[in-house]
Design a protein around this nucleic acid. Structure first.
Length: 271
DNA sequence: CTTTGCACCTGTTGGC
DNA sequence: TGCCAACAGGTGCAAA
């Protein structure tokens, strides 16, 4: 499910309930996530006061006094903030109960999501150590993307989804950014011209920023902390629009598979 | 090192 | 109507 805009929307939604609150109870109904929750997970978290809720790439960092809860939503994960006694939905695997009477509830049908309690410096964690720059930060520049792309023969669309290159761009926004930049997704990264790389950096920033502004994209099951969908689906130019007319030129949108993932593009607007 | 394909899961959809 | 293959916002890992 979630790419950077959906994770950021989730962060903004759960932060008010968690920041400054103490976790008084941890209820685990299903430990088999991407990595099984270890015995002692609940005990480690119980009693922790949350200092801040941050995001790095597609990870949520719930930073407490004694460590950080590192959460990933995988393909189908979501967090909701509910009141105690709210009936459980299928796949509501974990509850964090706070001393303010909020329940932060993790749901994940496919269980590709993960939770880690980390007591070492979190930026050094193996899952975070090799991540590239945040696309909305000044560290993500045309110079950076240019340098990273020069020796890469891989097609530019899967290239944009490599987290060591730039974080947060997933299957939807890779196609959307390439449409906006006018670059066809099958071009090798190393064959991009300098001006194209510059456009791409700007378009990645633009599309992610706009998506955050409307709460992300809901295709199927993504919901924010209030259980509501994001509205960026209406703004998608190409994703899941195979055969439909391009919003810019009317040419039918095409679809192909790259690196086992569907790619969408306009053969007329993108070269 | 880069690149490719698989694996992990459940739920939905579309074709026959 | 029912069955089954294909596919779905991700990514770690093994192998070539």
């Amino acid at each position: 499910m979630p790419e950077l805009p959906e994770v950021e929307t989730t962060r903004r939604g759960i932060a008010p309930a968690l920041t400054g609150a103490r976790i008084t109870e941890v209820m685990v109904r299903e430990r088999r996530l991407r990595w099984a929750l270890p015995a002692g997970f609940e005990a480690a978290l119980r009693g922790q006061r949350v200092r801040a809720v941050d995001r790095r790439a597609k990870y949520l960092l719930i930073e407490a006094e004694g460590g950080t809860l590192l959460a990933h939503l995988g393909m189908s994960g979501s967090f909701r903030v509910v009141r105690p006694g709210t009936p459980l939905l299928p796949h509501d695997h974990i509850d964090l109960v706070t001393d303010r009477g909020d329940v932060v509830r993790f749901n994940d049908p496919r269980r590709f999501g993960s939770l880690h309690w980390v007591t070492t410096p979190v930026a050094d964690h193996p899952l975070l150590r090799h991540l590239g720059p945040e696309p909305l930060s000044p560290a993500f520049t045309a110079d950076w993307l240019w340098a990273r792309s020069r020796q890469r023969r891989v097609a530019v669309k899967p290239f944009l989804m490599l987290q060591p290159v730039v974080v947060g761009v997933g299957n939807i926004y890779a196609s959307e950014a390439l449409f906006r930049a006018g670059i066809t997704p099958g071009r090798s990264a190393c064959r991009l011209k300098r001006a194209e790389v510059e456009r791409l950096v700007a378009c990645i920033r633009e599309v992610l920023g706009e998506a955050i502004g409307v709460g992300g994209t809901t295709l199927r099951d993504y919901v924010n902390a209030e259980g509501k969908p994001g509205y960026f689906k209406q703004q998608l130019f190409v994703y899941e629009r195979a055969g439909e007319p391009c919003h810019r030129c009317g040419t039918p949108i095409r679809q192909r598979v790259q690196a086992q993932r569907s790619t969408y593009w306009c053969p007329s607007c993108q070269r």
